[in-house]
Design a binder for these strands. Sequence first.
DNA 1: GCACTTACCTAC
DNA 2: TAAGGTAGGTAAGTGC
Length: 646
Amino acid sequence: MLTVIQKEQKLSSYSLNAVSAEFLGEQKEDVHHSMIGGLFLESADTRRRLAVYCLKDAYLPMRLMEKLLCMYNYVEMARVTGTPINFLLNRGQMIKVQSQLLRKARECDFVMPTMKSEASNDKFEGATVLDPLTGYYPQPIATLDFASLYPSIMMAHNLCYCTLLKPEQVKDLQPEDYTKTPSGCYFLKSSKRRGLLPMILEELLAARKRAKKAMAEAEDPLTKSVLNGRQLALKVSANSVYGFTGATVGVLPCLDISSSVTAFGRTMIDHTKKMVEEKYCIENGYAHNAQVIYGDTDSVMVKFGVDTVPEAMRLGQEAADLVSATFTKPIKLEFEKVYYPYLLMNKKRYAGLYWTSPEKYDKLDAKGIETVRRDNCGLVRQLVETSLRTILIDGSVPKAIEIAQKAVSDLLQNKIDLSLLVITKSLGRGAHAEDYAVKQAHVELAERMRKRDPTTAPGSGDRVPYVIVSGSKGAKAYERSEDPLFALENNLSIDAQYYIEHQLQLPLLRIFGPIMGDDSKAQSLLFSGAHTRKLHTPTPQGNALAKFVTKSLRCMGCKAIIKAGLLCEHCQKEKAADVVIEQMQEFRQKEEEYNRLWTQCQRCQGSLLEPVICSNRDCEIFYRRAKARKEVQIAQEQLARLKLDW
DNA sequence: GCACTTACCTAC
DNA sequence: TAAGGTAGGTAAGTGC
């Protein structure tokens, strides 16, 4: 489950405790490793406690697996791509494309060449990001998107290994038999020969359509979000087909395909921008000149100049249809949503209220800014989020300023919960300081933690949580980073000034600046004045810091802070553990049901590990014979009777 | 103080 | 060993 969660979810922590809290609203019955020996030896009661801790650690991943519909989604992916489930877990995207390619190749009587690929650094030009006309837009902005741009390009132009032509081959062909791509490569048209990649993409997109439909029909929000995960996984799989052709470290790179795909994409976004701006202008009888204020890869944001959401939607829809008609099938430009109001901060950074129906907005959508980045502390994320909400939804800049000022003042008075000041960054590469060219706060901290206790220090790929504590003047941030728990235990004080100048200031100014139309005014309102004066009666640091303790470090009975374990001495007698055992018995029943469903031999109902055929020799022989004599059909009928979707 | 590089994380 | 792609913003360290 760790592998599954790390692959599928973007979280600040991947500990069993954090993940369970996120998806199940439950936590571990934690016992610090130093206590295990003592608990085991002491008495039956303490051994029971130890057992409960172990059981719950086993129980939580099972619950996660069930809640996230892992089996359903992985079985679906395994079937669609023809890839074993353990490959889906332990390997990357390429194996899926390779499997599909092999399957399709056999179907079409091709063999796949074995390439002796030498590590090359060949790069190719990617997508266009239109220069943004940054600023705050109090009027509706319509967004037009190409649906699955890269896959649809490959399908529309029949791009594949088996349709790529060498320039000298082109001479013998009629012009209507091939396409020349904007990057100067030639491909055979589908009327001559259908490419394998386009066929694969069709299947992936059909599966995605099914998932989207199921998502729309689902009622439970979690099921909905899991099905959303599935359709996104299929989308990534479809995009990976393009990625696969461009992966020079892979088994079958073909940059003629990938660079043709991006080249088509570049011409398409330019064409779209031009067409929209040329059509929707005063000269053509419209009230305003439409303006494409931004666009990235497959999307354009259009300011039609109209004042209401319905008008923007109508024009957006019309424009999308108009542009779509100029492209080969299945390329399609879709009108998706209107942003109103819209704050465009920079390339790949914007926020706005997201409307898909004229009655009311769906949500506040934010891209690229601090609220969606895991390497910011909670305070910044929270403050940026509430500021945006207050400004975009309530329309009140003064109220937003008040909130921001309060945060600055709280920070200086040590009133901010330490958990909100924790920054996390992932430890890349070898995870040792010497592997890096420049010193960084989280890397240096990991190094120091390794010296303190090598068993618990973060390793390669882990996310390192840290806070910045006060230190000597002029000390670099990497010298003042500290493990939050260590800071708590040793009563280290937080460097409020650092958090103001290096965490809050610029993100807030980037929001308030464009909205107030004046950077220096925003600067002086937020970061100088009465609220920035540090009160002379500093709160004892212990109190402020003590707020930051994960739940697993609190007694389950009275919530007192304890170093490790389930219950403080005071509550030791309480039987909180019984609850866990009860829950587990309930789960046990579900598990049995689940086992029945998945692990019975289709012929003799014997048990087996993989849901195909058990190790009973007779069954195995039966199965192989059936297959050998092309009696698969019989097996399929049997399956159908058992209502299993083959 | 400034330009440049590196690392991280995101958008698509 | 196995590893989808490129574009791009931002913060902080480094070197002049």
